[in-house]
Amino acid sequence: MSDKNIVVSVRNLNFAYGSQEVLRDVSFDIAGGEFLTVIGPNGGGKSTLLKILLGILKADSGDIKIFGQRPGISKKVGYVPQNVTAGRGFPITVEEAALMGRMLVKGGRTKPEDREFIRGVLDELQILNVAKNRMDDLSGGQRQRVLMARALASEPELLFLDEPASSVDMEGQVRIYDLLAKLNKKMTVVVVSHDLTIIPKYATSVACVSKTLHKHDEAEVTHDMLHEAYGVTPEMQEDCPLELIAHGHPHRVLKEHD
């Protein structure tokens, strides 16, 4: 990996919430064009790492560079959260939500060309037909694509997504990941996910986070990865191979399926 192609560089990152250590001595790089999947147990530090890379949280120590700059507001970075903080009922249309992503970066008054651009993004994500609908009226998959449209509205080169398909049915999940694969042709994609099944089909690399981080430049789930991320041993997997597609921390109840 040449230095020129590195879009994210993290060195010796440490972070704690008070006395509770969350990330310890984390170092890794993300190259342009990668599709990185970040896996790990709940509380392992995945979302915290994402928030530090986005500049929402400040690391206790370490050197972090996003496109050579310290984390913070950047037109080159897009972010798709798992959910929005507003509850259901918030009055906002699909178009308005997507436009928010463009205007927060661009500033100034909304111009016709901004709306035109947004309509193009909505079209690409196949939700242009619901552009004037309220977010409330959409399915889980459509809502998630609106959040992706909002992130794409600033024309990013690096897209971070936090559990983008967690509240979506199987068909919706496939559509979202197919879409991400398409986007990955023109931008770097980093997905935090519990879903290990996406790795072989979509990812080009995997990062296992459980306080420490191990990055693998390969797109398959190995025993080593599961051990690093979840503490799963090969013996445990032999008991129940279905562990490979388990969500979150492998659950013992699967043994009953023998």
Partner: peptide, 19 residues
């Protein structure tokens, strides 16, 4: 309005955008 709207709808996203 733009900042208030963004924070009311999605605080975390607004923070990531520098609000």
């Amino acid at each position: 309005y733009r900042q208030i709207h963004a924070v009311s709808f999605d605080t975390e996203y607004a923070a990531s955008m520098g609000v």
